[in-house]
């Protein structure tokens, strides 16, 4: 039996079907659809809460160019959602945020602010966030991490000054916390003739999920009162910041409803 005309018909049909099926496979990137990005990290034991509501935008390389704070303001301000309303719900009470204009050296920007006379957000409690725009309603839930204390160093502990001083910092577990940030606050140092030697500053020492950081080599060049502060962030913030998840603690849009609790101690450098 030879390979004849009708066999060629079969083969060419099969080839055609193969070409056709391969052509069907192509799927281009989806079109951009505008949405809303909500960012709010509730700060326990604070009288001021801040939230940002922005429109999402199309991708452009210009957005990601490095240009400092001025560039950031230039990018963010046109996206700010002025007509949005933001509220916190606690025990059937609604607390509404207002828009605040912030003036900094690099320019002006806007944010939503909730200023209260007493502290509204408490460790270990649950809160709801409600954001409403013309096109979208977003609800969020968060559990504030539990109260905790720094174990070491103890308040007013004395440490000898030096270029590389070994510090071990430990603290209690904060319930529902997933990430801890440890800051060192150094004092402003003046010479006896009133010359500025060192401006007071905040240094991020570590970021960890553990409850201790050992043998940190820290610059404690000058005697004075220093402070260690530990911030305990909840799981929502961890997923937003570390895992870069698009939406955490919210039912719609993009962004995060997170929370943070802090503790700090003073120690003396001799």
């Amino acid at each position: 039996m030879n390979f004849k005309k009708k066999d060629m018909y079969f083969v060419s049909t099969i080839l055609f079907l193969m070409f056709f099926s391969i052509a069907c496979q192509q799927s281009p990137a989806p079109e951009f659809n505008e949405s809303v990005s909500v960012l709010c990290v509730l700060q326990a034991n604070s009288k001021k809460q801040i939230a940002f509501v922005h429109r999402t935008t199309k991708y452009s390389t210009d957005i990601f160019q490095s240009g400092g704070k001025a560039h950031l303001i230039e990018i963010l301000e046109p996206l700010f959602y002025y007509t949005a309303s933001v509220s916190i719900l606690k025990n059937d009470h609604q607390y509404d945020f207002r828009i605040e204009r912030v003036n900094v050296m690099e320019g002006n920007y806007h944010q939503f602010v909730l200023q209260t006379d007493s502290t509204l957000i408490h460790p270990g409690e649950s809160y709801k966030l409600w954001v409403k725009t013309e096109d979208m309603e977003i609800q969020g839930n968060v559990i504030i991490p539990g109260e905790f204390r720094i174990i070491s160093p103890v308040e007013d502990q004395h440490v000898q000054h030096g270029q590389d001083v070994s510090l071990t910092i430990s603290w209690e577990v904060s319930a529902h916390a997933e990430l801890y940030r440890i800051f060192l606050y150094s004092p402003t140092i003046w010479s006896p003739d009133s010359t500025l030697i060192q401006r007071g500053r905040e240094t991020l020492l570590a970021e960890t999920s553990d409850t201790t950081v050992g043998d940190l080599m820290v610059k404690l060049d000058y005697p004075g009162e220093y402070r260690i502060k530990v911030l305990a962030f909840d799981r929502n913030f961890f997923k937003h910041y570390i895992e870069n998840v698009d939406r955490v603690g919210l039912n719609n849009g993009y962004g995060v409803l997170g929370s943070v609790v802090a503790d700090s101690v003073r120690f003396i450098v001799d």
Binding site: Q25, Q26, S27, P28, A29, P30, F32, N33, E34, S35, S37, L39, V41, Q43, I50, F52, H54, T56, T57, K58, Y59, S60, I63, F64, K69, L72, I73, I75, L76, L79, Y109, F237, H240, Y241, N244, D246, Y254, G255, V256, G258, V260
Partner: peptide, 29 residues
């Protein structure tokens, strides 16, 4: 695919930063 830009918070005491929004993983060809 990249389908847009959202905002992201790095430090609650600072301004947000822009962040890429990706579509479903390997959803385009």
């Amino acid at each position: 695919p990249v389908i847009g830009v959202r905002t992201k918070i790095i430090d609650p005491s600072s301004l947000p930063v822009p962040e890429t929004i990706y579509g479903d993983i390997n959803s385009a060809h």
